[in-house]
Write a protein that binds this DNA or RNA. Structure first.
Lengths: 130, 130
DNA sequence: CGGAATCCATAACGATACTG
DNA sequence: CAGTATCGTTATGGATTCCG
């Protein structure tokens, strides 16, 4: 719950509502963008979102459902079958996430280059001042 | 480093570059939006961003500088004086953050209402089935 | 003032085992 | 299949102390 300061109360001139913890946790963005493509069963998501544990998937889906981003439906098959899909609010969230993805990809090179410059400068300062 | 799965390698149809850890950590968005308004000294930021520890401010600024979002300048005053400002890339990040803030605020009520519905349903299911 | 270094609490997460 | 429960590890961040 202390994930991002915006999520709590206040920050300088910028107040995130307490509604967007989902954007900042580890797996929810992945889950949402999978569901943006089509509804998934639990097991499908588990295979689809590489590396997620069943515990984290359960927890992400639970939180996303509680916040109104995801709809959980028990299908009337013989065995236990559950389908997850996005609500319309969840669809908006997915769009937002996609926008973020796009921006980060556009500027990935800039950031990587900045890191390399920074790290080189650090080395120079540490070493070259005898 | 494991903050968000997007930041590592892969997620279903959505690949965050490794460049945006800053968007997902606890304080950087607050710091960036403060700097979006005007350059700040270290101490100013410390007072401005309510609740941040000196350690976290140092660490956020360091990471933001390394990624090319923030510029750090030692001013030629008598004593130690450092000013932080956004680079142009940092300005873009600030805009993105502002967009996120706006969206979360618009839909804060929706999310809160969804939570209440969900929690009420839970209670009903737990209690009312004797 | 602007930090760095250290210590410690806890929140987040992963692995595993079990259930209807 | 779709979870729940438990346990151990690691990541994160707060408090404190010290330094040029």
């Amino acid at each position: 719950m202390t994930r991002n300061r915006f999520l709590e109360e206040y920050s300088a001139d910028c107040t995130f509502s307490p509604s967007l913890e989902r954007l900042f946790d580890k797996w929810s963005p992945c889950v949402v963008s999978s569901l943006a493509e089509r509804p998934h069963r639990f097991g499908e998501l588990h295979r689809r979102v590489q590396g997620i544990s069943q515990k984290m998937l359960t927890s992400s889906l639970h939180d996303l459902e509680r916040d109104g981003f995801v709809l959980r439906e028990v299908l009337p098959t013989g065995r236990v079958t559950v389908e997850y899909s996005l609500t319309s609010l969840g669809g908006q969230l997915a769009t937002l996430i996609a926008t973020l993805c796009a921006w980060t990809q556009e500027h990935a090179d800039d950031v990587i280059a900045a890191r390399e410059r920074f790290d080189r400068r650090q080395e120079d300062e540490d070493g070259g001042m005898g």
